[in-house]
């Protein structure tokens, strides 16, 4: 059985004392344990006070995002042996995302990160008239194909973390994506308000096309492509 001797340097924060520090944990782990398993192992064997977040633990909900050796990613999708290969080390630094204030240790105030989304109205603002009782709107699969990958977004905020512009005024790539989806969706009639939001001073013009968002997205969404479409005035 292959095992790895790992060193995890975890950025911690104690709200009661308003104190931050980096704590080092040593542990031995099998090759296919995920980083969420490592955190649980630390809780069970060494330190029950270390706080971290997860929910689905299989890449479907975006709760466990954090920075590992500087890269925003989902801790439930990172296996020990892949991490060692990818980063070329057995020492890992774990930090919370910077997109919202830290509550404790690796847990951030996700609700505040979501304020960015709430601003772009992630729903149909003004729906097209219902096509008749018991009937769906017809949506051409070819037209759906153009934006369907964007609907895979789980709002993990990895892209927003990676996007330098998002740390200032920009609402961020995933918020832009949410509004772009509804611009491409024929069932939304309120295009004007959406365009206003897209081209506002918190909108796509803040993006400087670094493509970091596409690079880190765990769902493989080419976020920068959609933003480039918006910047080119495709809608």
């Amino acid at each position: 059985m292959t095992t790895y001797d790992l060193t995890l340097k975890v950025h911690r924060y104690d709200p009661d004392r308003d104190k931050s520090w980096v704590q080092t944990y040593q542990l031995t782990a099998g090759r296919i344990l995920r980083f969420v398993d490592l955190l649980r192992k630390i809780n069970d064997e060494q330190d029950p006070t270390l706080a971290w977040g997860s929910s689905c633990e299989h890449g479907q909900c975006g709760t466990c995002s954090m920075k590992i050796n500087g890269k925003p990613l989902l801790a439930c999708e990172l296996l020990v042996e892949n991490a060692v290969a990818q980063f070329g080390t057995t020492t890992f630094t774990l930090e919370p995302l910077g997109v919202a204030p830290v509550v404790r240790d690796l847990v951030i105030d996700t609700e505040k990160a979501y304020f960015r989304l709430d601003k772009v109205k992630p729903y149909i603002i003004r729906p097209k008239a219902q096509p008749g009782e018991g009937k769906e709107h017809l949506v051409d699969p070819k037209s759906l194909e153009r934006y369907v990958t964007a609907t895979r977004c789980i709002n993990c905020f990895c892209c927003t973390e990676a996007c330098i512009a998002s740390h200032h005024n920009f609402l961020g790539p995933n918020a832009m994506l949410a509004t772009i989806v509804r611009l491409m969706d024929d069932r939304e009639e309120e295009k004007e308000e959406r365009l206003k939001c897209l081209y506002s001073n918190e909108g796509v013009y803040r993006c400087h096309s670094s493509r970091a968002c596409s690079h880190v997205c765990p769902k493989g969404i080419d976020v920068a492509h959609y933003i480039a479409l918006a910047k080119a005035g495709a809608f």
Binding site: Y123, I124, P127, Q130, G134, K135, E136, H137, L138, V139, D140, P141, L144, V148, T151, R182, D185, R187, E188
Partner: peptide
């Protein structure tokens, strides 16, 4: 059941479509 599927569709759920554009 069907009425509720339509409720979701009319409010923007991205159901997969057949070539005619139906669910």
């Amino acid at each position: 059941a069907w009425e509720q599927i339509i409720w979701l569709e009319n409010r923007g759920m991205h159901f997969s479509r057949d070539p005619q554009g139906k669910l």
